[in-house]
Design a protein around this nucleic acid. Structure first.
Length: 520
RNA sequence: GGGAGCGUAGCUCAAUUGGCAGAGCAAUGGACUCUUAAUCCAUAGGUUGUGGGUUCGAUUCCCUCCGCUCUCACCA
């Protein structure tokens, strides 16, 4: 525990200080109700109750039975526990809705079935409390499956009021800051995260069945490596060394390929100290995988198969609605080189033009109006100009899944050069909905070439570029020992989850997105 | 970091030109043993994000700060 983590002691005697006056009143009322539970022998924070059934299994078991059939069958009592999410009371009877991890089930609480004393205890229950209910199943006059409670056990008292039942919780700030309330209040939100879980499980299974081994590599790095991004810094006290939170696991995973793990993957967090937006969270989840004896072209096939199958597994269809569009993840994705893609989008650029930095600079300045941007364009090399033109004119137009290949070598310091044209690399990025989803290449395993590329990165840093990689001596040493021909790929899990859940903001697929702390 | 917008009861939202801050849900008390946003009667609940200014008077107009949303830049 850090010693600089001194929090004021919490006052345990009454309502919390952040409550409004109305909320304090409710808080006190519920403390009083909890005391009444206690007086009746129920600990409002007791432990050890083990419900024997779930809402979903009860509903599934009796979904097809009519009211008469259920009455005749007279089922043995069920026993479920959950949060009370709705209550409609009639004085001497009430309907409550209990929610557990599997779903919801209604219970009919009747004074004559429970007894006077027990019904008094039930009256001290509120929406939000946790309760266990025992009783046989029946159908109400409106045909809803319900438990006819013969017994109940108060389990946990909720002291704060739930959000409004009809509109739910819509204030996005509260939704992100207090995700637990969002999850309780908005059932769709839970579905989003269940889908995300399904996606990650599908991917793990897909790779596991293809002989990939899942590993965990360091998230605290002594060097900045594996991507072009600004890192977070941190400090280890006992060793008295500065470290960086990782921006990518790439070089560690390739060290493992050197060591004989021919197929490895890692699904974990990367941290980048950059702007926050609807598509960027400072910490985000990345899948990276490496396969020896494969090329970037093999990975295009693998990626197409993995993501098209994932779409069906997660959403039920290879055609996925996303905002205004319906994305078609069915196989046969377009493959186009970066230069071709630019020439398709910008008319009047000949082969010769594409090779001429001044011509490209001129083209780029047509759409770059901000002063800082124009200055940046002036110092770009040929590869950077090609990349910038692509981002300006092509990226946002790639709606259906599209592989863009052959990125300029200068913007791909870890990728293998193309044999026919060393100015470009054996690399592709996958785009969908106008965004980058995946990035892959045949890995550069020539240690001398890699040395030169690292040196070029140092050079770029000298020129003032902020997002550069450090020279990683040990990585070069690893390559000098020999890395088999390998291809590797990174897939942004959050962004893929966005596509499969129709989420317009990355914060909607991250349980606890980074927000500024509120001032006291 | 730049630009635009937003912030009113626990929640969802009103408040005319600057003129007594309101409703529904939730809560409390009462009636009600088949409800589905249950219904009916009554009660209570507010430092209008913060601090300042203009004004006889500010939720409303102006400024500061805090937070959120969108967007641009950086990036994936």
């Amino acid at each position: 525990m850090d010693d600089n983590n001194n929090k004021p002691p919490v006052d345990k005697s009454g309502p919390e200080a952040d409550l409004g006056s109305k909320e304090q009143e409710i808080y006190q009322q519920r403390l009083d109700k909890a005391a009444k539970w206690r007086d009746s022998g129920f600990n409002p924070y007791g432990n050890g109750y083990r419900p024997q059934h779930t809402a979903a299994e009860i509903v599934a078991k009796h979904a097809d039975q009519s009211a008469e059939e259920l009455e005749k069958a007279a089922t043995a009592p069920y026993d479920v526990a959950g949060r009370i999410v709705a209550m409609r009371s009639f004085g001497k009877a009430a309907f409550i809705k209990l929610r557990d991890r599997t779903g919801e089930i209604q219970a009919h609480m009747k004074k004559d079935a429970l007894g006077d004393a027990a019904y008094e205890v039930f009256k001290q229950c509120d929406v939000g409390d946790f309760l266990a209910v025992t009783g046989p199943i029946f159908r109400t006059k409106t045909n809803e499956l319900s438990l006819s409670a013969t017994k109940f056990t108060p389990l946990t008292k909720s002291l704060r009021p739930m959000p409004e039942k009809w509109h739910g919780l819509t204030d996005v700030e509260i939704r992100y800051r207090q995700r637990y309330l969002d999850l309780v209040s908005n059932p769709d939100v839970k579905q989003v995260f269940l889908r995300r879980n399904k996606l990650v499980r599908f991917i793990r299974n897909f790779l596991d069945t293809r002989d990939f081994i899942e590993v965990e590599t360091p998230m605290m790095h002594p060097l900045v490596s594996g991507a072009a991004a600004r890192p977070f810094r941190t400090h280890h006290n006992a060793l008295d060394i500065d470290l960086y939170m990782r921006i990518a696991p790439e070089l560690y995973l390739k060290r493992l390929v050197v060591g004989g793990f021919e197929r490895v993957y890692e699904v974990n967090r990367n941290f980048r100290n950059e702007g926050v937006s609807t598509r960027h969270n400072p910490e985000f989840t990345m899948l990276e995988f490496y396969q020896a004896y494969a090329t970037y072209e093999d990975l295009m096939d693998l990626t197409e198969q993995m993501i098209s199958e994932a779409a069906v597994a997660v959403t039920g269809d290879s055609k996925v609605k996303y905002g205004e569009h319906v994305l078609d993840f069915g196989k046969g994705w377009k493959r186009i080189s970066m230069v071709e893609a630019i020439r398709e989008a910008v008319s009047g650029l000949s082969d010769k033009d594409m090779a001429d930095p001044d011509r490209l600079r001129h083209e780029l300045l047509k759409t770059s109006h901000a002063e800082a941007e124009r200055r940046a364009v002036e110092t770009m090399n040929h590869g950077e100009l090609v990349g910038a033109l692509f981002e300006h004119h092509v990226e946002s137009t790639l709606i259906h899944p599209t592989f863009v290949t052959h990125f300029p070598t200068s913007m791909s310091p870890l990728a293998r050069r193309n044999d026919a044209n060393p100015e470009v690399t054996d690399r592709f990025e996958l785009y969908a909905a106008g965004r980058e989803i995946a990035n892959a290449f045949s890995e550069l395993n020539d240690p001398l070439d890699q040395k030169g590329r690292f040196l070029a990165q140092l050079d770029a840093k000298q020129r003032g570029q902020q997002e550069t990689m450090d020279y990683d001596e040990d990585y070069i040493r690893a390559l000098e020992h020999g890395m088999p021909p390998t291809a590797g790929e990174g897939i942004g899990i959050d962004r893929l989850a966005m596509l499969f859940t129709d989420a317009q903001s990355i914060r909607d697929v991250i349980l606890f997105p980074l927000l500024k702390p509120l001032a006291k």
